[in-house]
Nucleic acid binder design. Sequence first.
DNA 1: CAGTGGTAACTTACCCGAGGGTCACTTCAC
DNA 2: GTGAAGTGACCCTCGGGTAAGTTACCACTG
Lengths: 202, 202
Amino acid sequence: MTESRPVGTKGMPREEREAQLVVAGTEEFGRAGYAGASMVEIARRVGVTKPLLYQYFGSKDGLYLACLHRAGGRLTEGVATTMASGGEPERMPLKVLSAIFTTFDHDRYAWRLLRDATVPGSGDIATAAADYRRRLDAFALLGATQLMTSRGLADPVDIEAIAQVWTGVVDSLISWWIDRPDEDATAMTARCARIMDRLFGW
Amino acid sequence: MTESRPVGTKGMPREEREAQLVVAGTEEFGRAGYAGASMVEIARRVGVTKPLLYQYFGSKDGLYLACLHRAGGRLTEGVATTMASGGEPERMPLKVLSAIFTTFDHDRYAWRLLRDATVPGSGDIATAAADYRRRLDAFALLGATQLMTSRGLADPVDIEAIAQVWTGVVDSLISWWIDRPDEDATAMTARCARIMDRLFGW
DNA sequence: CAGTGGTAACTTACCCGAGGGTCACTTCAC
DNA sequence: GTGAAGTGACCCTCGGGTAAGTTACCACTG
């Protein structure tokens, strides 16, 4: 990325190798969950051995955190700019979906890291993941509030529920997408647009 | 249940103990996922030790299967009778939700067993879970088809996506519900009715 | 109504393999 | 010869799984 070509020694510069490992880790953690994923398997994926992985990331938690921060950062950033761009409330869901699909077209497992139920209940990972979720939930809450005030507003707990359901919808769309590698981001967005139109008239 | 009072020996008849263990297992598997759950923790929950758990269920997979079959059986049965009762397509989602909430009011983690991503990719559990999911998906697909033909029908892949999103919605509603133990089944159903009315006019 | 055996419920103490984590070493470019 | 990239071989804990024993109740016997 920054340095163009070979750097220190035989294989690959650290920076580049780390990026590979984060990508592989994201896929493996996303697929099997924190508890189910294996460090040696992640190393194997990029054709390297476990000690190197540990030299670069320190621990399983360290690697997970690296993956989580990359995913969480890109996600919150993308959603934030989309939400900031404004527009009518009924258009926001599709715009957000489009942003997510585009950003994570080649990294579809990333989303799952924020909502992994198998991470230990306390510790750095749980804290960081909860923080990203909190930020995303805030956007969802904002969107839900705007949507509901444009209709006959409901009570705040209803809005909370709507926001959570929305994140669940994103979740299931991404799961569905993961199972269909041929479908790219634009096709996915078009499909969602079609569905929302037919189902709700949005 | 069948025998009324004390049976064999000191503690509790096998049948009753097994039921306790299945309940505890369902909660623990639902909370931490198959990979993250611990057999000794499940045993500890009901005040018993691991070997008894193994004597009764044979293996972790055995216990998981017992939990899965209880959950899956009740779920498919409940949804089947609800779907069979008929009605306008737009009313079905709420009726199904109501059935699920009522059935699992005191067993909220059960739903998650069918959709646990941390079970090994092959084996009895994966097969059984996939089977229950297939049956539920068939209902979702049926409901989605009815709904979409009542509007200007979409292509079959869209309907597949809608069905999957629907299960995701159920998923997130149940997660939300788990975090709010005070909310009972009727309150939850009422909330969903209110939301669907305001959001889609259903 | 001892005593005695049978059996179901249950435990203590252990085995073992998988996986997280580490150390000492090698290879290669400069 | 220095230092980064990388490895083989190891340790150790945690958790699934087991063997062998213990406790308490019941059903018999004499």
